[in-house]
Amino acid sequence: MWWVITVVAVVVLVATYLTWLAARVDRLHARAVAAYATLDAHLLRRAVVAVSLAEAAQLPTLVYAARIAVDAQPEDREVAENDLTRHLRDAHEDAAVPEPELSGLVQVSRRVALARQVHNDVVRDALAVRRRLLVRLFRLARKHPRPAYFDVDDPSLS
């Protein structure tokens, strides 16, 4: 009789823990996806600022760099964004760029850096939970694609 109760209790405990763990896995992956959406939005804002600044200061290569970054396929995006950062850095040094555009550029770049930081932090959390033994054993992360770090140079200008 007692062993039945013990077995039932153990099963209930394990099932509760697994349900909680599965919810945690889902939550962390959903947040990683959301953080990428936020980062994407800030990268787009930066590209828009870059284009308007390029037109004001007559920097055609900057327009191309911004367009390439916006149109890049996911696998090429990090390289394209790095390239845009380099062009923006040059523009930031450029004396011909007017002051209001410059401070807008610094702010939008800082927001990109912040969004990248937040994104990489939540990706790290999601990857950590994927490594847990029970998560792998019960394949709790199977319905979520593996999140990846957004690996670019520091986009902030100072």
Binding site: R31, V33, A34, T38, V118, V122
Partner: peptide
């Protein structure tokens, strides 16, 4: 406040189940 905005954007993009 910029950090607040960013985390609110991230949370806002989550579809609450």
């Amino acid at each position: 406040l910029e950090v607040y905005s960013t985390v609110i954007e991230v949370a806002g993009a989550v579809v609450e189940q």
